[in-house]
Design a protein around this nucleic acid. Structure first.
Lengths: 95, 95
DNA sequence: AGTATATATCTAGAAATATCGATATGCAAT
DNA sequence: ATTGCATATCGATATTTCTAGATATATACT
């Protein structure tokens, strides 16, 4: 687990915001599937282009904070709580 | 407590390294005072210029991870464990 | 006063990150 | 096959971070 890359992923307010929304998706998105929330619904809530949102989600996924499921033309993203718990533990241990 | 600024401060391997050395300063530095370790001793261990090291320490201090004590011409730095514990708690709560 | 040492600050160029528009890819429906 | 979405990727530019050298500041010692 590369903590530096994780800190870099978290060093952006929008990415942290997205992570926060996904904590309680039903409070923040109208359409929530077991696989998560689709990119365009996340895009609606941030004032950023589709390409930026897609990249942000990739960055979060690359370090394990979220996971994706492709279904047809949609990609659903949700938090990877198991991994997040490991990351938290690692931060607490290492910091 | 501004977590984004904290994540930015931590998004650099050298700064994290310094923080780690200061966890057990006696294991990593020959001269350790109750006020901490001086800048030039830290500089000796990283292959970076004095100005960069000084700036890195400022960044860490600005977000509360370390604290400094000026004594004569020396500035000693050490971890701010109280604040670090609060930061850890905040990360665990927010993430 | 003059010199040496430790640290901080300023300025600037290089490297990395942010961000967008355009394009590509893949799927769905006609 | 073609059209229309949803998402991903590419290429370019703007912004931020990294990093060093030069300079400033403060202290210590002759």
């Amino acid at each position: 687990m590369d903590l530096i890359r994780i800190y870099k992923a978290l060093a952006n307010p929008i990415r942290v915001q997205i992570l926060h929304w996904l904590k309680e998706p039903h409070h923040h998105f109208s359409e929530v599937y077991p696989e998560g929330v689709c990119v365009s619904d996340i895009k609606k809530k941030v004032q950023l282009s589709q390409s930026t949102v897609s990249q942000y989600l990739s960055i979060l996924q690359d370090v394990g904070l979220i996971q994706s499921t492709r279904q047809g033309q949609w990609t659903y993203y949700k938090r990877n709580e198991t991994q997040i718990d490991k990351i938290k533990q690692s931060i607490v241990d290492q910091l």
